[in-house]
Design a protein around this nucleic acid. Structure first.
Length: 733
RNA sequence: GCCACCGUAGCUCAGUUGGCAGAGCAGCGGUUUUGUAAACCGCAGGUCGUCGGUUCGAAUCCGACCGGUGGCUCCA
């Protein structure tokens, strides 16, 4: 062990310090000002970085970056907010002594603390919590780290009788447990089991706010204890908090639900149903322009159009696996007859009894359904249920080992009378289009495209404007190809998805590789299929050069996927485009093509949707542009505004010429002054406002104004049309 | 679905301890003939989300439901 510690600073300087030196010692050695501003140290050793308390001894030779009171440094804010979470927790415990603390991490823009408290915390409590926090901050108490060996620590926690902390500690790594005391009077001041790091003292917290409270569940498990999650945020400087809150306010003005209402793009009507979008003409125009543009691209890339209906037989979805597995998020099935309903319920009950490994598949729920069937349809009941005197292979069998046979039997009876499902996905329909004729390897790849509307019964609490709905249209396509063609096709799908995002200037997306979780039964069991599909996905993502994160459990139930994820105006993340590889549905539907060897082969499927859902995409786009769409997408591109009635005739002429030239123009002959008229069209985000008065009429000109309030001056109408034509064709975002 | 909050005119909002339902903007009709962010006069617009309860009397208090917002959970 060396007698001194070598500490490398970000600029490359190496400092020698005595063993046991702390980050604060490093800061002090550099300068007293830095020591005052320091809040923690980011210590890097062996390529591994860790943020440490100012007062903790450095672990050995290392690189160090001193984190200071800077609202521009995410690391510094992370530490600050973690500490502020402790302060808030103390305040809540003081006000509500029966509070049990659970977990309080920092977030990207603040922090939360999960608490177990019988009484509901409401926004009215925030002022009292903040006042208590302000007191703690004013006392400028030191954060003191306390380490204990695991046994002592566990004993201490057991004495506190807080199951959550005991749980947390049990899951913590290492032989020691650490606690942080907010103050230096251990045993008296507030303390919490915590890994750290923390700011040196509460006085460092310059500004904070308790923002909201919501429900949560312990460890994210709906069956576990319900908790309250109190959210807050903190900054070093008051001005930063004010700026942050101001920014949140401004973000709200971009909200597509607000803009959609103001600009008359869409509406959601309770009488029609929650989560069902009514596209008004202006919103429909935007969507249609996007669809038309993509259709052109698809033609270029060899896609073929198809159309399929909004419903399909339940048998279709039993084959695909959609039914009954995801029936909680499907609209209820439409049954042809009461017998069909009961047989379907029976099939589901048998299916679930089998999954659950029930000893007797005909017991419990199944028996009850059979009783119902006996009353509703005695002949069908007789056909299904065995006479104990005469065993028969064509009857339902009790006892273990008959699950597959029973399921098959009910399914056969369902051929006579079944039910329908509002389609949750387009793929089963497209698969049947593929299967409708013999396919040769020479025909592959076959790319079937449809703007297909699907219906999913999302939980009521999930619905949100255009971004989470119950009926939406996917710019869907299914590609059927040979395994050899897969990499090339995947690559083309990824490029297309990136093309649409880049075209609209949506550059801030995250790429997520969704993989299946072998432990989760919701994924189709086909290890080899998953292996090949996930391999293909990884290779394609890597080849595209995009930085992607792999997330286990995020796959579709039939295959892994690459998702393009964007954030909305309040920071929520939404999946837009998606590209998925599927070895499973071709198997379930027994799809084939004839290969060069004159033998049948199994095709591979790609599911892909560059926009994802038209609803969600347009919602995100509204927020991206704050309603001010580029010329080519704008529902109202220009408004012709008269100075007075004297120019009405000329205004009509201008309006008509714009219309003939293919533009979407509005004519405003109202008898107001041009100030308020112009103001109104600017509010409506009309790209160009053309003021026409007597002088314009005399010269055949228009006076061009943009929606930002700038007057661009006069020019001949023809010249303006030409300018707009160019701008529109450029599709500048 | 769960927790919290919210629901008054098309929009934004006011409405006192329970006592006749209000404003601005938008709309419509006039007047004005207007030169770049708001001319004037008038009219109309309401089952105060719905249903039930308490009360002499409910937008207001209570309950249930519907719808919305934020979060949780979910998201094939």
């Amino acid at each position: 062990m060396s007698s001194s510690l070598k500490v490398t600073l970000p600029d490359g300087t190496i400092l020698d310090l005595p063993p046991g030196a702390t980050t604060l010692d490093v800061a002090s050695k550099i300068g007293a000002g830095l020591a005052r501003a320091a809040v923690a140290g980011k210590v890097t050793r062996d390529g591994h970085s860790e943020i440490m308390d100012l007062s903790r001894p450095l672990p050995g030779d290392c690189c160090i970056k001193i984190l200071t009171k800077s609202d521009d440094d995410p690391d510094a804010l992370y530490v600050l907010r973690h500490s502020t979470a402790h302060v808030m927790a103390e305040a809540v415990c003081k006000l509500f002594p029966e509070t049990q603390l659970v977990y309080g991490p920092p977030l990207e823009d603040g922090f939360y603390y999960d608490i177990d408290l019988p009484r509901s915390i409401t926004p009215e409590d925030f002022a009292a919590i903040e006042a208590e926090m302000a007191r703690i901050v004013k006392e400028d108490r030191k954060f003191t780290r306390l380490e204990m060996n695991r046994a002592d620590g566990m004993a201490k926690l057991a004495a506190e009788q807080n199951r959550y902390k005991v749980d947390n500690a049990e899951r913590a790594e290492g032989d020691t447990l650490s606690f942080y005391v907010t103050g230096d009077r251990c045993g008296q001041d507030f303390e919490d089991l915590c890994r750290g790091p923390h700011i040196p003292s509460t006085g460092v917290i310059g500004a904070f706010k308790v923002r909201q409270v919501s429900g949560s569940h312990y460890r994210g498990d709906v069956n576990d204890q319900r908790l309250q999650r109190v959210y807050g945020t903190a900054f070093f400087k008051k001005a930063s908090l004010a700026a942050h809150l101001e920014q949140l306010e401004q973000a709200k003005a971009r909200d597509h639900r607000v803009i959609g209402q103001e600009l008359g793009l869409f509406t959601i009507d309770p009488l029609v149903g929650s989560g069902l979008i009514l596209w008004k003409p202006k919103g429909a125009t935007i969507r249609l322009l996007l669809e038309e543009h993509l259709r052109g691209k698809l033609r270029e890339q060899g896609y073929q159009p198809v159309f399929s209906p909004h419903v399909g037989r339940l048998e279709l979805y039993r084959t695909s696996g959609h039914f009954p597995y995801y029936r909680d998020s499907q609209f209820p099935p439409l049954y042809e007859t009461e017998t069909a309903r009961l047989l379907n319920e029976l099939w589901i009950a048998l299916y679930e009894a089998d999954k659950a490994g029930a000893a007797d598949p005909l017991a419990g729920g199944v028996a009850k359904l059979l009783d119902e069937l006996r009353i509703a349809d005695p002949p069908k009941h007789a056909e299904l249920v065995a006479d104990p005197a005469k065993p028969d292979a064509r009857r339902l069998a009790s006892g273990p080992g008959h699950a597959a046979q029973n399921l098959q039997l009910v399914r056969e009876h369902l051929q006579q009378s079944d039910g329908f499902l509002l389609k949750p996905m387009n793929c089963p329909h497209h698969v049947r289009i593929y299967a409708s004729e013999p396919r040769s390897y020479k025909d592959l790849p076959i790319r079937l495209a449809e703007f297909g509307t699907v219906y999913r019964y999302e939980q009521s609490g999930e619905l949100s404007g255009l971004t989470r709905v119950r009926g939406f249209t996917q710019d869907d396509a299914h590609l059927f190809c040979t395994p050899e063609q897969l990499p090339h096709e995947l690559d083309a799908c990824l490029s297309l998805t990136r093309y649409v995002l880049d075209m609209l200037g949506l550059g801030q997306y995250r790429v997520r590789i969704g993989l299946h979780d072998p432990k989760d039964p919701k994924f189709i069991h086909n290890p080899e299929g998953w292996r090949r599909a996930e391999e293909a996905i990884r290779v394609a993502a890597a080849a595209s050069g995009m930085a992607a994160t792999e997330e286990v459990g995020e796959a579709a139930f039939y295959g892994p996927k690459i998702d393009f994820v964007v954030k909305d105006c309040i920071g929520r993340q939404w999946q837009l485009g998606t590209v998925q590889v599927d070895y499973n549905l071709p198997e379930r539907f027994n799809l084939t093509y004839v290969g060069p060897d004159n033998r049948p082969h199994r095709p591979v499927m790609i599911h892909r949707a560059p926009f994802g859902s038209m609803e969600r995409f347009v919602g995100i786009l509204i927020e991206h542009f704050a309603g001010a769409f580029p010329l080519w997408l704008s529902p109202v591109q220009m408004a012709v505004v008269t100075v007075s009635e004297k120019s009405d005739a000329y205004a009509r002429e201008v309006h008509e010429k714009l219309r003939v030239a293919g533009f979407r123009a509005e004519l405003d002959l109202s008898s107001e002054k041009i100030g308020p008229k112009k103001h109104r069209h600017r509010q409506a985000k009309v790209n160009y406002i053309l003021v026409v008065g007597e002088s314009e009429a005399a010269k055949g000109e228009v006076n061009v104004n943009d929606r930002d309030g700038k007057t661009l001056g006069n020019r001949p109408l023809e010249a303006f049309i030409e300018e707009c034509r160019r701008e529109s064709e450029e599709r500048k975002a």
